[in-house]
Design a protein around this nucleic acid. Structure first.
Lengths: 358, 358
DNA sequence: CTGTTAGCGCCTTCAC
DNA sequence: GTGAAGGCGCTAACAG
């Protein structure tokens, strides 16, 4: 008849767990739906109805329960809620690394969509996924969120081709050729081609290249474009002009150092991302090489810093990728079919001050 | 005897819910502990023991179960898990807005600590908390995470003085004078004082000020410092030199416009944050006013962009604030007592190229 | 319109 | 060393 609750009440507790002594009998707990029900003198299901704005509750009851909820500062447990109903109104974002301009831009784009769609956002990261990434770990994160607390997840630069999941999964900038699931993909080939053609149009013939992380598809595609464009123009591809970086400024500095130390140094450098380009700028300065007078430079990504540095680059619309991905996910959650399972986001050449005719 | 499962199996499902027709009988579900138990020919409790590394399981059983877990790609439901046991190994971060340099820096700091502590991070945001912030909403987010899926949460720039929560809560840069709970606080007064003294030391006497969001404590403290330093130096505080901004570049541009349009314009401007300083730079340019030749400029925060702009500013060590806050939270979760409930993070004056003697 | 009942997936006693 | 039973907080079906 009467529901017995074994737990003590704790408010404003800010210290750690004091389990150990009263382990079993007294345990901290927060206000539950039962507390609300008792206080309002109704059943739990009625409270649940109020919580979920069902319309089969009398106005009077609704108000009374609402008031009690307010007074008790009650807020339903996400865990319990999502265990019963598949609908949580939050979407998940699995990030390889939150400490990276690319990721931050994706977050911004996702966030923009979230606000529009009136969803909540849960970003999941273990801080250094990239260092030990694998398909199974990715699957783990997806399962963690999707089988529990989110209505769907967006995963950024995944290596997996497909995911097993109860709820929809959208990949943003997947790290494989032909993802099986819905994905937002960048046009790396076109972007890199544009960059190269821009340099060639300016009359550059000796063009250095600083590569990106070899485990990333985008890096390969950009290098492919570099080679292909040279090939098509009849300019020989020279190994000494191709450096292998890792998308980081520091490594790019070493690459730039090598390139600029060549007997016949390049008159232009295509850095496979903006952070690498930043490394080139730094090194060029120490060499007394002026940009763009002595050296033209093109980056890739168009991260916010690029504008400050007046860097010519390829805008990858990273923000838009997050935005579009979220919209796709939303449609899937709604049970709609996608017009485009693979959504391409166009790149744009942004000509700024680091390139000029030879 | 035999456990009957009413659900169908679905793998690699990427489309939306197809409930509606078989609503009750067939529902998508992921691999559960029961599936693992059946496949391994043991009971669920045994699987649970393996999952939690209990030592009362025979090596043989342990291995067999582990293998099945791998094969099935099973991963326990965060929701269900955290409903039974208080330990989830993930900490929560409640952000006012992920689309903001300050927030991004805090995330980076938290992330750094997370990696060290081998915890997982769940960042929660509804995208536009600042627009409708209130103590009750904050409490809502804290409860949402803490009563469910995290072992503790960090909340950034909260307005609440205290939180009711089962697990520990640490405030970072709280938006109130004397927070009741553990908090990491910036030394806004000292920082702003340093900025002003730097300008005075350079010989500036007419110093303009661009304020921040009036709902933020930090903005008030910085303004206080501005006035106090002038007072102590015997320079009259002039209202026409004090503009009220909102920490945003656009608004700061209007303020800068007004300041520079004065009959007797200031020779220096102290912008209450770097984003405001960026606005000043933009407007000064349109006025043909050179920085630092004609106008000295100091910002506050030292966001990454500040370095590119060669902006003299106050480094608030935002990153460190997130890091320290996370460490504090960790200690609380471990049940330890804090040496310092209020942890101050010192500010530093970073002199760059936007200030010089008058 | 409201209460009762039955689990969601998991962990934790308590038996054996 | 292992299994059975109960319940965490909640929602959804079914009665009334």
């Amino acid at each position: 008849m009467c529901i017995i609750r074994y737990y003590g009440n704790v408010t404003g507790n800010i210290a750690g767990n004091n389990t150990g002594i009263y382990q079993m009998a007294i345990r901290k707990r927060s206000v539950t739906i039962i507390d609300v029900a008792e206080a309002a003198g109704v059943s739990v299901s009625t409270v649940s109805r109020v919580l979920n704005n069902k319309d089969d509750v009398s106005v009077e009851t609704f108000q009374r329960v609402s008031q009690v909820i307010d007074e008790l500062g009650y807020s339903s447990s996400l865990a319990a809620r999502s265990m019963r109903s598949r609908k949580t109104n939050v979407i998940g974002l699995v990030m390889p690394d939150v400490d990276d301009p690319f990721s931050v831009e994706v977050i911004r784009g996702v966030n923009r969509a979230i606000v529009e769609l009136k969803y909540d956002l849960l970003i999941y990261t273990n801080g250094d996924i990239p260092k030990n990434i694998s398909a199974s770990r990715e699957q783990h994160y997806v399962t963690l969120l999707n089988s529990s607390i989110t209505d769907g997840v967006i995963i950024v630069t995944p290596v997996s081709r497909r995911f097993t999941s109860v709820s929809p999964v959208v990949s943003v900038d997947p790290n494989i050729d032909n993802p099986k699931g819905p994905a937002v993909i960048a046009t790396n080939l076109k972007g890199a081609t544009d960059a190269m053609e821009h340099l060639l149009a300016l009359g550059h013939k000796r063009i250095g290249y600083i590569g990106g992380r070899t485990d990333l598809l985008s890096a390969h595609l950009r290098l492919d474009a570099y080679k292909r464009v040279l090939d098509q123009t009849g300019i020989p591809v020279e190994q000494e002009l191709i450096m292998s970086g890792d998308f980081k400024t520091e490594t790019a500095m070493k690459c730039a150092y090598q390139l600029l130390s060549l007997d016949d140094p390049p008159t232009a450098i295509f850095a496979s991302n903006d952070q690498s380009a930043i490394g080139v700028i730094a090194v060029a300065e120490t060499f007394g090489i002026r940009i763009p007078e002595d050296l033209s430079l093109v980056g890739f990504d168009n991260i916010p810093e690029a504008a400050y540095l007046d860097l010519t680059t390829i805008d990858q619309n990273i923000n838009e990728m997050g935005y579009v991905g979220t919209k796709m996910l939303f449609n899937l959650i709604q049970g709609k079919t996608l017009d485009q399972v693979l959504q391409k986001i166009e790149t744009n050449l942004i000509i700024r001050g680091t390139t000029r005719p030879i």
